[in-house]
Design a protein around this nucleic acid. Structure first.
Lengths: 339, 339
DNA sequence: TTGAAAGCGCTAACAA
DNA sequence: TTGTTAGCGCTTTCAA
């Protein structure tokens, strides 16, 4: 059924070794033999058995990507955009992608350990880094190659790409205060995520820059889903002294907040300003279109992937710790002067 | 560095074979030996080398999933929901997922051929089936296991899960005509996709059931993205005799249409009715919330995965061709009587 | 320019 | 109950 080197060898009357070398264009094989072998291989529909190659070569040409999910019905477009960037770049370099989903915790760590010890991939891509990240601690400790989208807050050194989230939030706050907002709420991400810290810091800095006090009761933590944003925003909006603006730390929560505001009878972009973070494709098409901070997620996926491949191949890299400057996308959800 | 069976064998003073059998609890190994081996394996941090196992066993315990993408920045939440269902179920059964992205065409077919011939996966999951689907033709021909989400229109027999899209669209049209709509536009999917046919048929049947003529100029094809929906809807809405309702064949296009309507100064759910198809998580949280046809995408991902695993393992299956009944989710985007 | 032989780490048939 | 042997398909010395 499957064609192996042996089959080709028999057909052309040469040894397996010669066939192998002919196929990979070693220069100690005569041109005639090469041609013969190539032709036979093509005709017979030969494709190398990857597992045999990997066993022999001791590398896998595979990149690991374990998506950290919270709850069963996860559906953050953020992940599909990232995966697309990753997948396309990996394919370009001839790498496979081993993808699984695991919610953060012991199960997740076991998955990493097994994959590392079984040498199932050449390296890992990490996403949604945590302030104290046991995945990173483990990989650094074992010296296993990986590149992260995001940083940690401890002293570990490793290659990453990240966006300057603090700057992003400062831009948001500057934009809002510029339109006269003083009571600005913040829908924060779960604390353990590193970008929660950066975005919250940026929020505080922005307020400080504008000479405004921060009302801590206006800072609430959500779970990065629409539902979470919706529920938190409801609570904020039911307060007596409600905020005039809500800065959500990702787009999905912002969408939830928009719905909450609308159910409360407020016109978003007129009675209340709402902003997001990420600029997923949907942000441009929501109603109203969402003011948000652009993260080139697709591009970051591709960057991280290329960095990892270079790392694995021991190729030189210009930079191993890259921080991107974010851009504020002003759209209708916040683009009005507070009266 | 890595611990192998040989290392354990040396440590416990037994043969490699015995160690192998002890680890997998063969009953021809003495309890004492088993315990010894298990303990040693644990202490030494043994993890089997998957590639060696696969080479030997001639199976891969891996499922292939090639995501068909159109254009670089693809970001359909549909895919991430499906992937989540797939991934979780695969993990449950101990299968890996080999994921890539390829846009339909020759490149895509080459990827399938190479993976099949290199025996890189035990089976494939297919998505977004085409009326004449060369992937399916190839897999059927080679007898390679796969399960599809969706059907084809030719005579090929293969296992699939699909939703009764025609019924779904009939429900939509019935709902709209019940509220007095007569001029209903349809944002159709690219023709080559099988569900384009089913949904369009359903649309026509629904209109016929209501005794209404179909104005062919109101049926336009989009590319399933928000942008596509937006552009097509713009054209529809700029007509002199504009439709009173737009039935989009997926949620993303519906979102685009909503934005187009709003830019035209129409209030969706009052001046115009817009409906979608899929019921992605976003549909509930859009503004206004979107009337749509529910497809349990996450669940379908899990179902398809389990079917494929059974197929691979030659386990009996109750049904191999499953068609699900859709449910109409009526929300504000269409829930009003046309005056 | 070619081939024989060894071995990657594992499983399984067979023998002891 | 255990070990010997062979072999999955491939790459890579080393020798011819």
């Amino acid at each position: 059924m499957t064609v192996t080197l042996k089959d080709i060898a028999e057909r052309v009357g040469k040894s397996i070794t010669t066939v192998s070398r002919a196929l990979y264009d070693y220069d100690d094989v005569s041109p005639k033999t090469k041609e013969l072998v190539h032709k036979a291989a093509l005709e017979m529909g030969y494709t190398p058995n990857t597992f045999a190659q990997r066993l022999q070569k001791q590398r896998t040409d595979t990149l690991g990507f374990i998506i950290p999910t919270f709850g069963p019905r996860f559906s953050d477009p953020f992940f599909s955009e990232f995966l697309a960037g990753l997948g396309n770049k990996a394919a370009e370099f001839g790498y496979d992608l081993l993808v699984s989903t695991r919610s953060p915790g012991e199960e997740e760590m076991r998955a990493y350990r097994e994959i590392v010890r079984g040498k199932r991939v050449d390296g890992f891509i990490l996403l949604r880094t945590r302030q104290q990240d046991s995945r990173i601690a483990y990989l650094v400790e074992t010296g296993f190659p990986f590149v992260a989208f995001g940083r940690t807050t401890d002293k570990m050194t490793f290659p990453f790409v990240d966006e300057d989230s603090a700057l992003g939030m400062r831009l948001v706050v500057e934009h809002l205060t510029g339109f006269g907002h003083r009571r600005i709420a913040c829908l924060a991400p779960p604390q353990e995520l590193t970008f929660a810290l950066h975005r919250l810091n940026g929020f505080h800095e922005g307020m400080a820059n504008a000479g405004l006090p921060v009302d801590e009761s206006l800072i609430v933590t959500g779970d990065l889903t629409q539902r979470g944003g919706y529920e938190r925003a409801k609570i904020l909006l039911n307060q007596l002294n409600r905020p005039t603006a809500i800065a959500a730390c990702n787009d999905l929560m912002a969408f939830g907040a928009i719905r909450a505001a609308q159910e409360t009878g407020l016109v978003v972009g007129k009675d209340i300003a709402i902003t997001g973070f990420d600029d997923i494709l949907m942000a441009e098409h929501s109603n109203p279109p969402l003011t948000t901070v652009n993260q080139p997620i697709y591009k970051i996926g591709a960057m991280v992937c290329e960095m990892l491949i270079r790392l694995i191949r021991n190729e030189p890299m210009a930079e191993t710790q890259i921080t991107l400057k974010p851009e504020l996308m002003v759209r209708q959800s916040s683009n009005y002067q507070l009266s």
